[in-house]
């Protein structure tokens, strides 16, 4: 039984069948990659996991609880953090403030309105934020306006914002999309380090095969809304069905 269990999930948009009969089991503390050609339904599947979309059929269980019908903030409070394809950060806030918000959310839950306390008195949380920024080599940028950072830095900040919440499951939606090779390798190293240091489950959607094969313990290949194969990376590489569906279409 994995930490994330997707059973018979189907989703239609009008006449378009985006997902059908998706079954997926992500084991605890593993890194599970979902790959597939454009339009395979990867993002739709991800959106079904985080509460942005509700599947028409099937069930999604996380840590023994159903996520269906819960809103994104409730699902985050269950322990799922999501990194977006284009970094979603609080661009008008400083790097440090970006880190504080997930920490407050983690400690106080979705609602607490502490309007009369001062952010600068939260010593414990500030230290935690600084430790995390140090981990991703961004401590020197803590006073920077996050809008003015490079895309690679924004990505690292977003990752740090997710990790500082200590999620049980980290969902990555093409974390290296549009990155230069050097940045991609940095991201891979960062993720490897996270995997080694923490008890964390990672589910990753990725186009870049280099990233997938460096990180994943299991790979699911999605084509036309259905899982084609699920196997270890070394078996996926040479799998004839995968080559046909995946490489055959994109090349």
């Amino acid at each position: 039984m994995g930490i994330l269990e997707v059973k018979d999930v189907g989703k239609r948009f009008g006449g378009l069948k985006a997902l059908s009969d998706v079954n997926l089991s992500v084991k605890e503390n593993s890194c599970h990659a979902i790959i597939g050609p454009n339009g395979a339904g990867k993002s739709t599947l991800l959106n079904c996991l985080v509460g942005k979309l509700i599947p028409d059929t099937g069930s999604v269980m996380f840590d023994g609880q159903s996520v269906l019908g819960r809103s994104p903030h409730e699902i985050n409070q269950m322990g799922i953090s999501r990194v977006f394809q284009t970094p979603e950060i609080f661009a008008d806030l400083t790097v440090f403030e970006n880190m504080m918000i997930p920490l407050f959310a983690k400690r106080d839950g979705a609602y607490r309105l502490h309007a009369y306390e001062s952010v600068s008195n939260e010593r414990a949380l500030i230290e935690e934020a600084e430790r995390m920024l140090d981990d991703v080599n961004m401590l020197d940028k803590r006073h920077m306006h996050s809008a003015s950072m490079s895309r690679g830095d924004k990505r690292r900040l977003e990752m740090a914002m997710c990790l500082v919440q200590n999620p049980k499951l980290l969902l990555l939606d093409e974390p290296t999309a549009g990155m230069a090779r050097a940045d991609t390798n940095n991201t891979i190293d960062l993720l490897k380090e996270i995997k080694a240091k923490r008890d964390i489950t990672i589910a990753i959607i990725e186009h870049d095969m280099h990233v997938v094969f460096s990180l994943a313990d299991r790979i699911t290949v999605l084509a036309q809304g259905t899982p084609l194969v699920e196997d270890a990376p070394e078996n996926i590489k040479g799998h004839p069905k995968v080559q046909e569906a995946y490489l055959g279409e994109t090349h």
């Binding site: 985080v50 409070q77 806030l93 918000i101 959310a105 979705a110 306390e117 952010v119």
Partner: peptide, 24 residues
């Protein structure tokens, strides 16, 4: 200067991220 004020500025900045950060 409160956490509440910071959340309000976060709302102005990016509601989507706020949702996925566990805040309503």
């Amino acid at each position: 200067r409160s956490p509440f004020g910071m959340m309000l500025r976060a709302i102005k900045s990016n509601q989507q991220r706020l949702n996925y950060t566990g805040l309503n």
